[in-house]
Nucleic acid binder design. Structure first.
Lengths: 171, 171
DNA sequence: GCGTATTATTTAGGAAGCTAAATAAAGATA
DNA sequence: TATCTTTATTTAGCTTCCTAAATAATACGC
């Protein structure tokens, strides 16, 4: 664990930023996951349930696999598997669309809705307390910097063909 | 894709920071991975090879599974699998320790070393260009904010029992 | 020296993501 | 209408991570 001499000239700044991003995400997960685990779900599953809940509030109780994937930044095959597990756990329902026989529609089950309502306030408090080390101004600053950075990355990709996809989402 | 009305009072700031972190990491991967793919490896594999390379430069050509896991922030069983694939690909060698018969030692193969040397400069340039949207001062600022944040998260975990682990590392 | 930690790795099994290809339904066009 | 293309989902198979448990070797304490 000694700091040790830095490797080379290299891009120390950029590289360490990436490592920091990775460490941050990793830490956030390790801190939040046990909370979800007590409720019998994973962080990824929370992200899905929470998304379905918000969609419902916005008047879209039923989402297609594709829509859900876009909101979560994951691809349709990943949605299928995740939804399978949530259906099996009883938190989500899958049905057919009347208008388009190709589509399956996903929605919260009553149990899923209850779970979200139970966990949400507490989760929110936890997130707030995690961010507490930074002052409000610093939080804004961090958000702005990340936003500028990620927007730039988005643009770089524009040309590169491929688009969405990522790892998880809302936490 | 409409910005849409925000869900609730909720912790909008904290939540959006997490989403930004996720989006950023996702974007970085999607941008860098194709570069590694052309060389026949994944981003995770690059992280391992690059770590072994730096260790070698620091005079530790042979790393135990545990050491490598600590550097990469992944757990030993994950190292085993990753090393298996790299051995199969011919970029890494696994041997027994003379001093401790429990340990296996991992090191770069000549082909692995050549690969790192071939890719490194180019990768470095790419990382630098990704960071370019932010000024040097902003990059420092981002690093500092992330560092403070992640250090705080580290501390929160101290008490919580568990320690390391994360997703990937050096990129 | 012998039995009991402890430590190092691997195995087994699972979650969550990916791409590519298969299937099925819609839509468009000729 | 019949064919062709596009869209929506799933299946198959892979990577990368995880935890828990099995295996093997070392180190400790008496």
């Amino acid at each position: 664990m000694k700091p040790s001499s830095l490797p080379k000239p290299s891009n120390v700044a950029g590289d360490s930023t990436f490592r920091l991003l990775l460490r941050t995400i990793g830490n956030v997960r390790r801190i939040l996951d046990p909370f979800f685990a007590k409720a019998g779900i994973s962080g990824s599953q929370w992200a899905i349930l929470w998304n379905l809940y918000r969609a419902e509030e916005d008047g879209h109780a039923l989402l297609r696999v594709t829509d859900l994937g876009e909101r979560l930044l994951i691809r349709p095959p990943s949605v299928t598997g995740a939804v399978d597990r949530l259906v099996r756990a009883g938190f989500v329902l899958r049905s057919n669309s009347d208008h388009d026989q190709r589509s399956k529609l996903i929605q919260l089950s009553p149990a899923g809705r209850r779970l979200v309502e139970t966990l949400h306030a507490e989760h929110d408090k936890r997130v707030t307390s995690l961010m507490d080390v930074l002052s409000a101004a610093e939080q804004r600053q961090l958000n702005q910097l990340l936003h500028r950075f990620v927007t730039h990355l988005d643009e770089i990709q524009e040309g590169t063909g491929r688009e969405p996809s990522a790892q998880r989402s809302s936490l």
